[in-house]
Amino acid sequence: MKKIEPILDVKNLYTRFYTESGVVEALDGVNFDVGYGEPVGIVGESGCGKTVTSHSVLRILPKNGRILQPPSEIYYKGVNLLDLTDEQMRHVRGKEAAMIFQDPMTSLNPIFKISDQMIEVIQLHRKVNKNEARDIAIEMMEAVGIPDSAERIDNYPHQFSGGMRQRILIARALALQPSLLIADEPTTALDVTIQAQVLEIIKEMQKQFGLALMLITHNLGVVAEITKRVHIFYGGRVVESGPTEEIFVNPFHPYTKALFDSIPSLEQDKTRLATIPGTVPQLINPPQGCRFHPRCKYATEICRRARPPDMWVTETRRVQCHHWEELDLTIDKEKVKEVRKTAVSVEGV
């Protein structure tokens, strides 16, 4: 299989925050990539470094955050973003890589009309006059399914609901025709029926524009639905990456398996949930060796001592664990069959 050059290739990303209580090792040697036109998921619990990763890629970290250089490298279309000047970086943000944020309530300025906020962004990056920019804005708003876009564009953010605002943010991000869309928990603040609408739009837009999508979320359902490949984050490191279908059926890393087991499933009946003991590690003083070892039931001496290497275990899958070969974590066949059966009956509804 020929390897296609990825649009975004993050290598050895180390991000540190310098705070009064100490140095936060937010990202600790993160390696991952996103292919051209490929929807990729970044999954993990709060504080695992998902959002820091996206902020590092776009270089929008707060003042006390530093990307260690060397060894960090972030290649976007073959160019190392960390070598660019601030001026050059500004052209990358928005025009090349656009971002939508978690909270649609705070990402729009409440005292400006939607039209002002859309036109400003479009004119900043594209050589068009105000009327043309407005037309582009209306066209994009129609594309994401906002009724009466031509009139509603002159409304203020508070006149839209949460789901509508998230659509506007998607429209604004896509108006610049970026190649990469970074979506940071785009549906977390929304209700399920609205989430379904927004996910549908993201899926459609991704296909229509051939976007590379970096979808950051903690919701495993959303990941399963949209992405082709997934990177699982834990404690500032990527513990496992690979095709979504394979990882969901056959996880190699004990954390991935434990994470899947701890979510209550719609397909199973009331039983006790498997839990992961303890809590997410503090990254000011992270555990030595493998960062998951204090919560891992398979941990041995080497896990406490040495950081597991990033290993390619198949063509497409990578895992960071000393013992992945000895463990048989495959979700048992019976359960898979059961899930399939219920899936069919759900479809029948």
């Binding site: 029926t193 609408q197 549908e200 359902g221 969901f248 899930v339 479809e347």
Partner: peptide, 26 residues
């Protein structure tokens, strides 16, 4: 309830569902 149930994203990539997408907001 039918629409609500169909709207939940399932954490299993093999489940492909016919989703009922409700129009508009509550």
């Amino acid at each position: 309830t039918i629409a609500l149930l169909s709207a939940i994203p399932r954490p299993d990539p093999r489940i492909k569902m016919d989703r009922i997408i409700l129009e508009g907001d509550p």
